Structures are given as C-alpha cells and as structure tokens.
Simulated assay, not measured.
Amino acid sequence: MTSVKESSVIQENKANAFNNCPVTFVVALIGGYWKPIILFSLLTGRKRYSELKKSIPTITEKVLIQQLKQLEKEGLIIRKSKPVVPPYVTYELSKKGADLRPVLYEMAVWASKYGGAASRAFKKKLANFPG
C-alpha cells in the first residue's frame, strides 16, 4: 500500500469537510459498500470469520479481510484470536462500534421507507433488528 501525503490538497480538503460537517466524518468511517453490511451483521453479537463470510455471501475473502482490518484499525470492531489449531478468531463490535447501533437502525428505517422495491426486505430485517 502507498502512503498518504498528509500535506496534500486532498487531505486538507478532507480535514475541512470533517470540520464543517460531522456527517462527513461518519460516512468516511463507515461508508463504502461492505463496512455497513459487516457492522450490521455484528449487531447481533460476536461472530467467527466463517459466520461473517456466510452472512455476506457475495463478498470476496480478500475484501472481507481488508474491511475487517480497517474496521479494527478505526476501533469499531474487536478481533479476538485464540492460539489454537485451527485458528479460532472472532469479531465483535467495540464500544465505539456498538454506539453506532442507533445510527444504523435509523438508516435501516429510512431505507425501509424510501428503498423502493427493496423496502419489503428492509422491513423484514427491521423486524429482527437487535435493540
């Protein structure tokens, strides 16, 4: 991976956006295609890697590993590894990640209202949303 030049114009623009709009910070942290799905999946509790992979069948292993590492680096999830063979690794939301529960819930409510044809599926998931 290449390093990010901290004094670049794009980095200054990002910093200004974060300072002017806290939503930008949240979107940068949990945005993208896979991170919200991973976080949503972990709302029901601790999961092993294989359980996460099974709950998100269209994600590749490479991308899942990358996203988990990023979420861990940001302090949103906790990776616990037991030194056994075969490896036993679990992922769970950290306190910081669990504090996103109401945000994710409200996003799901909004999607169920405005999600068009997909809103029926969203409403089913909302019925099982861990509160």
Rank of each mutant, 00 (worst) to 15 (best):
L52Q: 02
A28M: 06
A17F: 12
V109F: 04
P22Y: 14
A28Y: 13
S8T: 10
S112Y: 06
K123Q: 05
P87Q: 09
F129A: 01
G31L: 07
R46K: 14
I78D: 07
K125Y: 12
L104C: 05
Y105G: 00
K47Q: 14
T24H: 10
F122M: 04
F18E: 10
I78C: 02
K96W: 10
I56W: 02
A117Y: 14
L64N: 00
K95E: 14
P102C: 01
E51C: 06
K5Q: 14
I30S: 09
S81Y: 11
R46T: 13
G32D: 09
E72A: 07
I56K: 01
E61P: 00
L71W: 11
L43D: 15
D99G: 01
R46L: 08
K5I: 12
K125A: 06
Q66R: 13
S41F: 05
P57C: 13
R120I: 04
K82H: 07
A28I: 00
I78P: 00
F18S: 02
Y114W: 13
W110D: 05
T60R: 07
R101L: 09
V89H: 03
N128E: 13
N20K: 14
N128V: 03
A118D: 08
L76I: 06
S119C: 08
A127E: 12
D99E: 15
A98D: 09
F25P: 00
Q11D: 09
K123H: 02
S8R: 11
W34G: 01
E92Q: 12
P130W: 09
A98T: 04
G32K: 08
P83Y: 10
E51M: 10
R46V: 11
L64F: 08
T60E: 15
L126C: 01
L29I: 08
G115C: 05
S3T: 12
V89M: 01
R101V: 00
P102F: 03
L71G: 01
E61R: 04
P83W: 10
V9Q: 14
L64C: 02
K5G: 03
G131Y: 13
P57N: 13
R48G: 12
V109L: 06
K69G: 02
W34P: 00
P130R: 09
S119A: 12
C21W: 15
K69D: 13
S7N: 14
G116F: 15
A28Q: 11
K124Y: 10
L64Q: 01
I65R: 13
P83D: 08
G31V: 06
L64T: 01
S50T: 09
G131M: 08
V23C: 04
A17L: 14
K113I: 07
Y49H: 12
K73C: 02
N13H: 15
S94P: 03
A17C: 06
C21F: 15
A127R: 08
L39V: 04
K47V: 05
T2L: 09
S112F: 04
V89Y: 06
S119T: 08
T58E: 13
Y88P: 00
L68F: 12
R79W: 07
I37F: 10
L43T: 11
K62W: 15
V84M: 05
R101K: 13
I59F: 04
P83T: 03
G45I: 09
L43E: 14
K73D: 13
